[in-house]
């Protein structure tokens, strides 16, 4: 199956949503400055997603093959045990926002733009999950991202791009040799149907992480994933 592009995703975040996040709700001067910045961002924002419906197969040693590409992750082997299909994807805030944020020079504006771009990426991911539910009637899905855990290193990101052929370029996402995606607010991974919700955070001991979505379970790897 060819890659599918999701675009024309509305990005209608309101300044009022950002004030408390950026700690400026009580200050008119900063609020007005953010309003202007957000208005410019909204004018050009085009978050996008490229994904593919892919077959999940297994090598003799249990290694997972997605559309014939071998992915080296023990956690994936276990998580994908009952999966016959999965959805490799690349989501991005879009090169328009990336280019815009690169024109900013003030530290505060750069920080705010980073938050806006992150929210645009979040909007893309939400649209992707809604699309999967509507199109494939997926129930509970979970996500695995290369680089989130040592078990599935960042270098494997090249394989996601390879599975999606040139779809990354189509949505304006470039992958550098060192596996960095540009626009920076882009994410690649595989969405899969799971009986119970999986978050990489459950296996990640890094504390004070602002992106943590589930508590670290010290025993989980040994109990569930250790071969």
């Amino acid at each position: 199956m060819d890659a599918i592009i999701i675009e024309n995703i509305p990005f209608d975040i309101q300044a009022k949503q950002l004030y408390p996040i950026l700690k400026i709700e009580s200050n008119r001067k900063y609020a007005e400055r953010l309003d202007i910045l957000l208005a410019s961002a909204r004018n050009i924002a085009c978050p996008r997603v490229a994904y593919k419906l892919a077959a999940v197969e297994y090598d003799n040693d249990g290694t997972v093959l997605i559309d014939g590409v071998c992915l080296m992750s023990r956690v994936m082997q276990v998580n994908f045990e009952d999966c016959r299909r999965a959805f490799p994807f690349i989501a991005t805030c879009g090169m328009e926002l990336e280019k815009w944020s690169r024109t900013l020079t003030d530290t505060l504006d750069i920080f705010w733009a980073d938050t806006i771009n992150m929210m645009a990426l979040g909007t893309a991911l939400e649209a992707f999950k809604r699309h999967l539910t509507d199109t494939f009637e997926t129930r509970m899905t979970s996500t695995m991202n290369p680089g989130s855990l040592e078990d599935w290193p960042l270098s494997e990101q090249h394989k996601i791009f390879s599975i999606l052929n040139a779809a990354g370029e189509t949505i304006g996402v470039q992958l550098t040799e060192s596996a960095m995606m540009v626009p920076l607010k882009s994410v690649s991974g595989i969405e899969f149907e799971s009986g119970e919700k999986f978050h990489s955070c459950q296996l990640c001991p890094r504390d004070k992480c602002p992106s943590r979505r589930a508590p670290y379970d010290e025993q989980l790897y040994a109990v569930k994933y250790n071969a």
Partner: peptide, 14 residues
């Protein structure tokens, strides 16, 4: 070299 992330660096600098 090879990395263009700057938010963390900017905050440390500030």
């Amino acid at each position: 070299e090879g990395d263009i992330h700057e938010i963390g660096k900017n905050i440390v600098g500030m």
